[in-house]
């Protein structure tokens, strides 16, 4: 305390000697660390790029459009993995967004504050469960359930459709999507709830005063008002789903092929890296896996840019600002 008041005091000799210098140092130090973030991110891209150079020079753009993945003949294509990643993520969103937004509506509009806070805390804990636990749980519970009950039941109704055709192994796109959906619940619920709660009270009251039912005021006034936040939660969840590794690896079936059927086993980018990275023999094999990492990075970057653009566009039009 004594030292700080001496430094703040107007006439302290030591203070006046130190002052200008301290500011420069603080600026330099914090600037250095901020630049470090910039540098590290660029470094990640650089490393991925240089280490995948062999695969890039050998396959070029065909890498992204080839279905073949054959370590024996050193021929590699990323298409099955990109397909698997996109399919499982989108399916997960289709399941998770309606349920998650519904839960967020309950938590922000209906539940008493204390209950809402308690439940939200529990839902957020769901995000803290390590992904490998999800994977194991899915192996022991979801996979048999899918193989013995859900799969046959769905096929009895809609087995003619190509999406549900074929043998049900239990592991596959749909199982992975289900576990992903559970994993991204907390992101959707927590962020959407925050967005819904930030809608001003008078918006709700005005709708109710005009004779709207509670649901009408929620769905036609509150939700559109909070749509930026809700969309943000969707992007966030999508980013998580795309990068998710361990849980998906355990239940997707690990088959580098493209199937229309949702019950068929597939593969995702993150899963193939996790499975084969430390076992990759040969330079082209390894650099192909690293190029897959680069593709994953690019996907993240596109998503991130889209989310930023969305925020800029929407706030530019002034919808989400009160």
């Amino acid at each position: 305390m004594a030292t700080s008041s001496a430094a703040i005091g107007p006439a302290g000799k030591s203070a006046s000697r130190r002052q200008p210098f301290g500011d420069e140092v603080a600026y330099a130090v914090t600037w250095f660390f901020a630049t470090l973030i910039l540098g590290l991110t660029l470094w990640v891209v650089f490393e991925l790029w240089t280490h995948s150079s062999e695969s890039i020079s050998k396959f070029g753009f065909h890498f992204l459009t080839t279905k073949l993945w054959n370590p024996v003949t050193d021929e590699f294509g990323a298409l099955p993995f990109i397909y698997g990643t996109v399919l499982t993520s989108v399916l997960a969103l289709l399941i998770s967004v309606p349920v998650g937004v519904g839960a967020a509506i309950y938590l922000s509009e209906l539940a008493p504050t204390k209950l809402s806070n308690a439940l939200t805390f529990l839902v957020e804990l769901l995000a803290a469960v390590p992904s490998v636990i999800y994977g194991l749980m899915a192996i022991f519970t979801l996979v048999p359930l899918m193989r013995d009950y859900i799969g046959p039941a769905v096929q009895a109704v809609a087995g003619k459709l190509p999406f549900f055709a074929g043998h049900v192994y239990g592991v596959g796109y749909l199982t992975a999507a289900l576990i992903l959906a559970i994993m991204i619940f907390p992101y959707i619920i927590s962020v959407s709830r925050e967005a819904l709660m930030s809608v001003p009270r008078d918006q709700r009251e005005a709708a109710l005063a005009l004779g709207a039912t509670k649901w009408e005021s929620t769905w036609q006034v509150v939700v559109p008002y909070a749509r930026l936040g809700i969309l943000g939660s969707v992007f966030l969840a999508l980013a998580r789903a795309i990068g998710e590794t361990m849980a998906v690896t355990l239940v997707i079936g690990n088959d580098p092929a493209i199937h229309a059927s949702l019950f068929a086993p597939g593969y995702t980018i993150a899963a193939v890296i996790a499975n084969e990275f430390t076992e990759a023999t040969g330079k082209v094999y390894l650099s192909s896996l690293i190029e897959l990492g680069l593709v994953l990075f690019a996907l993240t970057m596109i998503l991130n840019a889209a989310a930023q653009l969305l925020i800029v566009l929407t706030t530019g039009k002034g919808t989400a600002r009160g």
């Binding site: 973030i37 910039l38 590290l40 991110t41 660029l42 470094w43 990640v44 490393e47 991925l48 280490h51 980013a239 795309i242 990068g243 998710e244 590794t245 993150a270 890296i273 996790a274 990275f277 896996l289 690293i290 990492g293 994953l296 990075f297 993240t300 970057m301 998503l303 991130n304 930023q308």
Partner: peptide, 17 residues
Amino acid sequence: YMADLLNGVPSIVIGIF
């Protein structure tokens, strides 16, 4: 922007790095 990007990078890619 870079921090948000780095935040979004899947952990497996960080692992490769």
